[in-house]
């Protein structure tokens, strides 16, 4: 947090979490070049995630996946008016410093890239730019929030086109939050220990029944119905990675997922936008995967 000369403050938790609040009900789309960014914005995306390869290609190509080339990020920033996010490797605070210097709007400390530190995540409190982090359960979510994350996304399994892990993670986080709200005062300490989460944050969730920051969903969403499903399970917005630009008609798929995310409670709208969409991305069974990206991060 920094105090400016006109006595205003930048980088406060409120403005960092506040941008996540503004993205609620929206779709954040992975894009690899300015042309895709334009398609995403035209379709009604609330933000784009600039990266070199979508997760399904990272999975296919193997090797070390790193932060994107700054030039590509800047070209995308110059192309769209919506927020531009970018990914840093887990624990790679130098990549995060570069992304902040590039003026990106949100940094995703992401398991989709190859981790740089197998013990520590980035200390996110030291940054003016806000961070989003993935989580597979409540303890992981609260540890990330404890480190300064301003937005949590359930991880799912990126690049698979299979929503099953996203559902598992959302349901797990929700069930664990419900358990906390029904715990008596003595049980809270034990639950905090089981969750391996900071006690003050556990107490806050027990009191409010919700995370202290917005919770979005990522990893495997590839149809309008998937978006409706995860929104009904409590996600407040969705990240779509490979699901759009690996589908048969990306422009239409993007528009359809945007509408389904807004009107997720109205099956007739979701039915309408799902009609004649062309093929969704080819998906993968979890059992066929060589690597589970969601297991990265601790």
């Amino acid at each position: 947090m920094t105090l400016l000369s006109d006595s205003s403050v930048v980088g406060s938790a409120r403005v960092k979490r506040g941008l996540a609040d503004m993205l609620r009900g929206g779709v954040i789309m992975d894009v690899v070049n300015p042309e895709q960014a334009k398609v995403a914005e035209d379709a009604g995306a609330v933000a784009v995630m600039a990266l070199e390869r979508v997760p399904s290609d990272i999975r296919r190509d193997g090797g070390v996946a790193r932060m994107s080339d700054p030039q590509m990020i800047q070209e995308i920033q110059a192309t769209v008016t919506i927020p531009v996010m970018a990914k840093a490797r887990i624990g790679h605070f130098a990549e995060a410093q570069i992304l902040q210097a590039l003026d990106v709007d949100y940094i995703d400390e992401s398991e989709v890239l190859t981790p740089a530190d197998e013990d520590n995540h980035i200390d996110k409190w030291g940054f003016t730019v806000p961070f989003v982090c993935g989580a597979t359960n409540l303890g992981e979510a609260l540890r990330r929030i404890g480190e300064g994350a301003c937005l949590i996304r359930s991880k799912g399994e990126a690049g698979t086109g299979n929503v099953v892990e996203a559902v598992r993670h959302l349901r797990t986080i929700n069930a664990q939050m419900r358990r906390l709200t029904s715990a008596d005062e003595a049980e809270i300490y034990r639950l905090a220990k089981d969750l391996q989460a900071p006690l003050p944050l556990v107490l806050e969730v027990a009191a409010t029944g919700a995370l202290p920051v917005p919770m979005f969903c990522a990893g495997g969403i590839s149809t309008p119905a998937d978006a409706s499903l995860v929104m009904q399970l409590g996600a407040q917005a969705v990240f779509v990675g490979s699901g759009i630009f690996k589908s048969e008609d990306p422009d239409r798929m993007a528009r359809a997922i945007v509408e389904a995310t807004t009107h997720y409670l109205d099956p007739s709208v979701v039915a309408k936008v799902s009609t004649g969409l062309g093929a969704a991305m080819r998906g993968a069974e979890m059992a066929s995967l060589e690597q589970r990206l969601a297991e990265r991060g601790w």
Binding site: V15, L19, D105
Partner: peptide, 14 residues
């Protein structure tokens, strides 16, 4: 739009 800057410039004041 974003007349006061991108997210890094987002601020709180009175």
């Amino acid at each position: 739009r974003n007349g006061f800057g991108r997210q890094i410039a987002s601020f709180e004041t009175v």
